[in-house]
Computed example of a mutant assay.
Amino acid sequence: MQPAGVLHSDGRPCPQAALWRNGRALTTPPEAPQGKVAERRGTWLWGGVLWLHFGHFLVESTARLWALDHLEEEIDGILFIPKRPRNGGEVAGYQRDFLALLGCDKPLVSLDAPAQVERLIVPGQGFGLGSLITGTEPYRNTIANRFAQEIAPEGPEKLYISRSKLPAGRGNLIGEEALETYLAAQGYTVFHPEKHGLREQIAVYKAARQIIAAEGSALHLLGMVARPAQQVAIVVRRPSSATRGLEQHLQSFAGITTATLCHLTRSWKPLGKAKARLWMGELDMPALQDSLRETGFIDDSGPLWANLDPAEVRARLGDDFELVPEKD
């Protein structure tokens, strides 16, 4: 938990300003700041906690922007506090782009110190992890009616959203490069979203008819722009409740029931204590091929998909990873 948030002018905490996840508040009322506090004139919208992490930004930092459809007066901008104080006032380009894609041209400000705001509008949290992953109706309506409306579909009909170019230690899939080769032979274009701007990602996601994706944050952006006629398969890379959250997001926002494919022969983790999001799943290629055929994402052409050689996997991982023991 993090002491952070909004206080009324008399020092009382504003409970609507808290960030909630999985049924608990991640931010708790802070103590009143001591000494002189910078003043910020005008009327501002409370945005909450600003994450630089792409997925958490989409799900938790945009959660109050539904209020843009319900403002009764002009605002001067949107105020956030950084998730990590060391990031101070840093705002990423994609975060400004997201706001612009909602049709808002106001400044997005991350406060690097406490501030006394002349007037602050504090909407409730309309999206989040856990029970909030389906979004409130006002939040879903705002995304459906405002977000990325001017971006036209542009890209291939068959798309594989990959994690293979992300740095090691980000929860990668072992064998993903081989999977890319197999899917390319089936007519899929391999797409690395981190190599493209927000607008290009959205155009490509809108254009695809069939999408296979390594489980990860990119699916949250897809959920905001997808349409019911699209088919989506999720290739699970770790044992995590986050997969269920992605399924619920796509179902609630886009009316898509995903084909969720969990075919891992083994899981590996960094030595010592490591969160499950950092684990690396080793793909069971034959089982994955069978499931993709059964769900209509690939046909029967081409060779049988082969698993990686265990010795090759061990050599790739080196001495920094250990096998996750199987549960009894």
Rank of each mutant, 00 (worst) to 15 (best):
Q2K: 14
V6E: 07
C14P: 10
L19K: 06
L19Y: 04
R21F: 01
T27P: 11
P29D: 04
P30H: 03
E31A: 14
E31C: 06
A32P: 05
G35H: 05
G35E: 08
A38Y: 09
H53P: 02
G55P: 01
V59E: 05
A63W: 03
L68Q: 10
H70A: 10
E72M: 02
E74Y: 07
I81E: 07
R86L: 13
E90T: 14
L101D: 03
C104Y: 03
D112A: 15
P114T: 00
Q116T: 07
G126T: 07
F127K: 05
G130I: 07
G135T: 04
T142E: 08
T142W: 12
I143C: 00
R146V: 03
Q149K: 15
P153K: 06
E157H: 13
K158E: 08
L159A: 10
L159H: 05
Y160R: 09
G175S: 12
E176P: 05
Y182T: 01
A185S: 14
G187P: 02
Y188T: 00
P193M: 08
V204Y: 00
Y205Q: 00
K206E: 01
R209Q: 15
Q210M: 11
L221C: 09
V225T: 06
A226C: 04
P228T: 04
P228W: 02
A229N: 09
Q231C: 08
V232M: 06
V232A: 05
R238G: 03
Q248E: 13
Q248R: 13
H249Y: 07
L250G: 02
S252A: 13
H263F: 13
W268R: 05
K269D: 03
K273D: 15
A274N: 01
R277W: 06
R277L: 01
W279Y: 10
G281R: 01
D284T: 10
S291E: 14
S291D: 14
R293V: 11
I298V: 12
D299L: 00
E322T: 12
K327M: 11
